[in-house]
Design a protein around this nucleic acid. Structure first.
Lengths: 91, 91
DNA sequence: CGGGATCCCCGACGATACTG
DNA sequence: CAGTATCGTCGGGGATCCCG
């Protein structure tokens, strides 16, 4: 699955997360929100997400597809949280 | 998200996929189905999936949680397929 | 048959410096 | 400010051998 190839990469989901509530004004701002990730990596990741049609070509915001993705990912996230609680403490 | 840490790893999803229709009899068999992945990697991945409660502790089959995961992943997969068609040919 | 122990390699990531 | 170029590292993945 190529999608995981993308989302599995470092900071990819974080970027999605940071853009979830609307556009982020500047590159540097996004960089700061992402724990000051290296500009090289951030730039590369954003480029990939743009290529995938998930992030807008101009500016730093999600496309419709990006928001859709967030939606389908919701249940997975929810499941992951429940899963974490029962699977993590396998004393 | 730790879940992606797991599923993003190589062969993890493939293993889920290969177990989707029921147990696979032997380690070697699963290995063959997974493109003859190295035993070291397969062993490690299965161990991780077991630790996550996704694969049964004994034998090579999904747990209830594993099947649940497959379920929530369904919509994501569906979305990914649609996404692939419109995003891939960005001629 | 299941899977641990080793060794090797490559690519992702990160830091830094730099340009328009 | 946005983004690229370069370089070093670190770890995951793969191949292979081998044991219980």
């Amino acid at each position: 699955m190529a999608l995981l190839d993308l989302l599995g990469r470092r900071w990819a989901l974080r970027i999605l997360w940071e853009l979830r509530d609307g556009p982020v004004p500047t590159f540097r701002e996004l960089q700061q929100r992402c724990d000051n990730v290296s500009s090289s990596v951030l730039s590369e990741r954003v480029r990939e997400l743009r290529g995938a049609g998930i992030v807008s070509e101009t500016g730093f915001e999600l496309t419709d597809a990006g928001r859709e993705l967030l939606t389908v990912l919701g249940p997975v996230d929810a499941w992951a949280k429940r899963w974490a609680k029962r699977a993590r403490p396998p004393a």
